[in-house]
Amino acid sequence: MQKYADYIKRIEIDSLWSGHKHIVWDLDKKVNILSGINGEGKSTILNKVEKGLSPGGEFASHALRGVHLTVSPAEATWIRFDVIKSFDRPLMYAEIANKIEENGVNTDLDWQIYQLQRRYLDYQVNIGNRIISTLQSCAADAAAKAQKISEPKIKFQNLIDELFASTRKTLIRTKNEIRFLQTEEELTPYQLSSGEKQMLAILLTVLIEDNQHYILFMDEPEVSLHIEWQERLIDMILELNPNVQIILTTHSPAVIVNGWTDSVTEVSDITDQVEGKK
C-alpha cells in the first residue's frame, strides 16, 4: 500500500550548478518562502525537487538526481504534490494546441486550467457521492455532515466571486465546468485576464486536493496578480486546505506582508560551497 507523506521536513540537493554548491533547507510544515536575487537559483531548486519526484509522487529513500527528501512520517515513500507555473506564455507544443484550440486554449495558463477542469469534474463526482452516502446513512447528524463535505467548494466559489467582483464576473454555480457570467455574457476561464487565470488556477488546484495532506510548489506566483491578491494569497490557500504545505519562491514583499516574514529563507542561508563543506 502506498504510504504518503504529510509534509517535507528537509530538502538536500547535492552539487547544484555543476558541483559548486550544496543545498540544505529545513522546512516548516505549513509555509516556506524562498527569496533571493535574480540568478541565485530559487527556481532551479524548486525544479530540481520536482524532477526528483515521479509523476505520481514516488521518491527514492536515497538521493535521486542529486535530491534527497526527508519527510514526515519517515516511512512514507510517496508525496502528493502540485506545481503552479506563473508565466502566461503561448503554448509551445503544436500537437496539444491543435487538439484543443477550438476551446480557446492558447497559453500555458490556459493549458493548466484545461487540465484542472478535468480534475474538477472528478472532484465534484467524488464529493457528490460522499454527500449521497452520508445522507443515506440516516444518522442523526447526516445533514450537518453532508453540508460540511460541500463547504470547501462553496468557500472556493465565494472567494472567486469576491476576487472577481471588480470586473463584474461571477461563477455560474449550476454548471459542472468552470464558467463565468459577466453582465449577461457567459465566459470560459480562457477569456479571463492573466491575473484572474493565475488566481483561478491556484485556488482550483488547492480545492481539488480535497483537504488531503500535500505539497504545493509555486514559482513566483505573484506574477500578474494584483497587489491585494498577493497579500491575501497564502491565507486564502490555507483557508481552502489547512493541510497543504506551501513551498514557493517570490520577489514580492506583498506576498509575505500578512504575517509570513518568519517563513522566508534566503537562498544564501541554505547554500554551502562544496569546497568548503564540513
Rank of each mutant, 00 (worst) to 15 (best):
M1N: 03
Q2K: 13
Y4A: 10
Y4C: 00
D6Q: 05
I8D: 02
K9I: 12
R10W: 07
I11F: 11
D14E: 12
S15F: 10
H20E: 14
H22E: 05
I23P: 02
D28Q: 00
K29L: 08
V31M: 11
G36M: 13
G39R: 10
G39H: 11
G39M: 08
E40D: 06
K42H: 11
S43K: 09
I45V: 00
L46Y: 04
K48N: 14
K48Q: 11
K51R: 00
P55V: 07
G57Q: 03
E58N: 01
H62W: 08
A63L: 05
G66T: 03
H68P: 05
T70A: 11
A74S: 02
A74N: 08
A76H: 09
R80V: 01
F81I: 02
F81E: 04
D82M: 07
D82W: 02
K85A: 07
S86A: 14
F87H: 15
R89N: 01
M92Q: 09
A94D: 09
N98Q: 13
N98S: 15
K99A: 15
K99M: 05
E101G: 09
E101T: 14
E101H: 11
N106Y: 12
W111G: 00
Q112D: 03
L116A: 05
L116K: 12
R118Q: 07
R119M: 03
Y123N: 01
L135K: 11
L135N: 02
S137Y: 06
C138S: 09
C138V: 10
A139R: 15
A139W: 12
D141P: 03
Q147W: 13
I149D: 09
S150R: 15
I154T: 13
K155Q: 11
K155V: 12
K155G: 06
Q157E: 13
L159W: 08
I160E: 04
R168W: 10
T170L: 13
T174A: 12
N176H: 13
N176E: 15
I178Y: 06
I178L: 06
R179E: 14
F180T: 04
F180K: 02
F180N: 02
T183K: 14
E185C: 01
E186I: 15
L187R: 01
T188H: 02
Y190M: 03
Q191C: 03
Q191P: 04
L192V: 04
S193H: 03
G195R: 05
K197A: 07
L200K: 11
L203R: 11
L204E: 02
L207Q: 03
E209Y: 10
Q212G: 07
Y214L: 08
Y214E: 04
L216P: 00
L216G: 06
F217G: 06
D219A: 14
P221D: 08
V223I: 15
S224P: 02
H226N: 13
I227R: 01
E228M: 12
L233D: 01
D235E: 12
D235Y: 08
L238H: 02
N241M: 00
N243A: 02
N243K: 10
Q245M: 14
I246D: 03
I246P: 01
L248C: 06
L248A: 06
T249A: 08
P253Q: 07
A254P: 07
V255N: 00
I256T: 14
I256G: 04
I256L: 09
G259C: 08
T261I: 11
D262M: 04
D262R: 07
S263G: 06
V264Q: 06
V264D: 04
D269L: 09
T271A: 09
V274Y: 06
V274K: 03
E275G: 13
G276H: 10
K278I: 08
